[in-house]
Amino acid sequence: MAKQAPANALKTAPKKQGGFAKWLPLYVLMIPGLAYLVINNYLPMFGLTFAFKKINYNVGVFNSPWCGLDNFGFLFKTKDAFIIFRNTICYNLVFILLGNVLAIVIAIMLEQIRTKALKVYQTCILIPYLLSITVVSYLAFAFLSTDNGFINNSILAPLGVEPISWYSTPKYWPFILVFINLWKGFGYSSILYFATLIGVDGSYYEAAVIDGASTWQQIKYVTLPCLKTTIITLVIMAIGRMFYSDFGLFYQVPMNNGMLFDVTNTIDTYVYRGLLQLNDVGRSSAAGFLQSLLGFTLVMITNVITRKVDPDSALF
């Protein structure tokens, strides 16, 4: 891919005979942003080498000895390896799929509201996003607690159902975690889609209505095509994070309860628990490096496919 991109640039360059001078003002505009990326993101990337080093501060991080792939071993040490990778990937797939569908549906609904209520909706659905995950874990406990939780006390008890011991029953947790993740994130991502929708040129809809399109047809033939680029972008970016997980969601919300590890242990929680005592920069860098590398590979594959199918929507 990295090869392909400059090749493209070369292809387009001769076409624009105006040459470099023509584009210079645009490059100048980019300087602040690029400079910041260099400082904030690229310079610290020397830290990526930590993944392959045995850090000794006495000789300095630059002169620490290399140790090959030793730092990666702990991720694959046990049979937990399968569980943590499976959990991380599966949850992310569900989050990406359901999260985007939900957000698009809500964005389309928001777009149809023309009353003052729009402001209220827009403000309120963002609330969950504003709460810290610690607070969310307390709220979850308020609902799920065995002795005085809402669900057991106020919903199941009147129905005559036996109270459920939520925190010691793994089978409920995939649903609980997916629900909480969607609840926390849908406001944010639907606003992203909503912003794109609002920018859609009204004449497209006018034309569709003149052609006698129903609401559903307008959505299908006007709205969704306009959202296509945004959808693809957000999905590709989410795929890049495929091997990461929201630490708070998987650690704090299930209260680090050992009974639930089969369905709550992800790469990040495993690394956290395993390295808490060791405080090992090399190993935590190694875990991060692997997560990034795998995500990067997936993104590259997705991007190549996107480029084949729809060049305009490809990320780069």
């Binding site: 990326l37 993101n41 610290p44 990337m45 780069f316």
Partner: peptide, 19 residues
Amino acid sequence: NVIAFLVFFTMLFNGGLVP
């Protein structure tokens, strides 16, 4: 596209907190 790639790259890889 190269620059867009460089921008996107920073979302995937980072040096970590210590560096």
